[in-house]
Structure formats: C-alpha cells, structure tokens
C-alpha cells in the first residue's frame, strides 16, 4: 500500500511539474507575442540575434547539409540496387532532402547550436542576477531577451534550411555524379521532373515551427535556471534534449497535416 502511494505520489508530482512547466512556457509565448509591438524599437536586438543565430550557424549548416546529401544519395543507391535504375537516385534524394532531412537535421543540429546556447546564456544571466538587474531597471526581460531570440530563430531557421537543402542537393549530386557515374544532365533532369514547390514550402513550414520551438524551449529553460554553474550546465543539456524531442514530435504532427 505504501509502495502504491509512493508511486502515485511521484507520478502526481511529475504530472503537476509538467503542467506547470507547459503553462509557464505558454505564458512566455504569450508575453513574447505581446512584446512584438516593440519590434521596431528593438530591431537592433533582433538583428544582433539574427546574426548570431543565422549567419554564425552557416558553417555548421553547410557541413551538415553536404554530408546529409552525400550519405542519403549513397544509401538510396544501395537500396535501389536491382530494383530501380540509378537515374532515380537524384529525384528520390532531392525529395527526401526537401521534405524531411533538410529541415529536421538542420533543426536538430541547431537545437544544440541555438537552443542550448540560448539556455546557457540566459541561465548564466539568471544565476548572476543579471535578469533581476533588468527587472530593477524596469526593463522587461521577456521583451529584451526572449522576444528578439524567438523572432530571430523563427525567421532564420527557414532561411538556414533553404541553404541546407541546396547544399545537401549539391552533396548528393557530387556522390551521384562522381561515384555513381550518373551524368549531370540525368541528375538535374530527374530532380526537375519530380520537383514540387509544395515539398519545399512544407519543409520551410516545418523549419518555422522548429525555429520557434527551439528558441522558446531555450528561453523558458534559461529563465528557470537556478543553482549556479551546475544549474547552468543542467539547463543547457535540458534545452538540447527538450528541443530535440519537440522537433521530432512536431515533425510527426506536421507530417500528419501536410502530407
């Protein structure tokens, strides 16, 4: 009996924590949306974050993109052996890049680069009382810190995914042309004939949602940080794990609606 009570107590406690944290994240989203009225005044903060989240992530996105394209082309060719001619590898790879791999892999990599770094930055500001300092200066931390990061991540993620898509396509082309000896003409004709704008748009829509969730998770977890340097470390890991999980969950939900 005591054991059942103990298990129920733990489940109840976890459920309450989940509800309270979800509520907290929704409040953060609501307050950030309300802060959008200051977007023009705070444009400098938003542009700084766009540089940090977008431009400075480009080397990582290029690296991830080129290898994603290359490996998916190579493995598609392996799976097509004896079933389909190699001329279909290009179109098949481009489809999977635009619909799934481009947005999801870019977002997962940026969950570490962006989500975790937002949580670490805001977390260390929290434990060193810099967030309290903003409050005492009558500056809303959500408007000053969270809103620019959420806006920047939400707008930059689709742009980064466009880069990742085309770099990945280039990676696939290199493998297909140089290692599988399919001509450039066959590759590009194949890609062109199976290309659908909707595939790219659906990928970008996913990227938009992934950018928003990654930054919201990073900001919320950062603001909740306590317990000094150890707490900052915990928040950083938590932001990465939560962002990654949310990306995969949202990917599934969006796939249900989009395809």
């Amino acid at each position: 009996m005591r054991m059942i009570y103990f298990v129920l107590h733990i489940i109840g406690k976890k459920a309450l924590k989940f509800i309270s944290e979800s509520g907290g994240a929704f409040i953060l989203v609501g307050k950030s949306l309300r802060s959008l009225s200051h977007l023009y005044k705070d444009r400098r903060l938003v542009i700084e974050q766009m540089l940090e989240i977008g431009v400075r992530s480009l080397p990582l996105v290029v690296t991830v993109g080129i290898f994603t394209g290359a490996v998916s082309a190579w493995q598609a060719a392996y799976q097509f052996q004896g079933i389909l001619p190699l001329s279909y590898v290009g179109p098949a790879t481009s489809k999977v890049i635009f619909i799934e791999l481009g947005p999801v892999l870019t977002a997962l990599v940026l969950a570490g680069r962006v989500g975790a770094s937002i949580a670490a930055e805001l977390g260390s500001m929290k434990v060193t009382e810099q967030i309290d300092a903003l409050e005492t200066l009558a500056i809303d931390p959500i408007r000053f810190l969270a809103m620019p990061r959420i806006v920047a991540a939400t707008t930059m993620m689709p742009i980064l995914v466009i880069f990742a898509d085309f770099i990945a396509l280039f990676g696939a082309f290199l493998v297909i042309n140089m290692l599988l000896h399919v001509s450039a003409e066959t590759f590009f004709n194949g890609v062109k004939s199976y290309f659908q704008v909707y595939d790219v748009i659906s990928g970008l829509l996913k990227a938009l949602v992934f950018g928003a969730t990654t930054s919201i998770a990073g900001c919320y977890i950062g603001f909740q940080t306590s317990g000094g340097a150890e707490g900052v470390g915990r928040s950083t890991i938590k932001a990465f794990v939560v962002s990654s999980a949310l990306i995969l969950m949202n990917d599934y939900i969006l796939a249900m609606f989009l395809f």
């Binding site: 260390s124 060193t128 810099q130 005492t136 200066l137 009558a138 809303d140």
Partner: peptide, 29 residues
C-alpha cells in the same frame, strides 16, 4: 515598472551585463 524607476539597486556581485561595455551597461536604462 513605473515605481521601480524611483529605485536603484546594487547587487551583491554588481550584476553588470557581461556582453556590454561599462558605458553600454550604464546607458541602457
């Protein structure tokens, strides 16, 4: 926030914003 403009606060570790220079820290409010 209106009431807080009447206040100034010195934190135990000063709580200066790491990413800003001294001038930017002070100019912010």
């Amino acid at each position: 926030y209106k009431i807080r403009r009447k206040f100034g606060m010195l934190f135990q570790n000063a709580a200066l914003f790491d990413s800003m220079t001294v001038e930017e820290n002070m100019a912010l409010p």
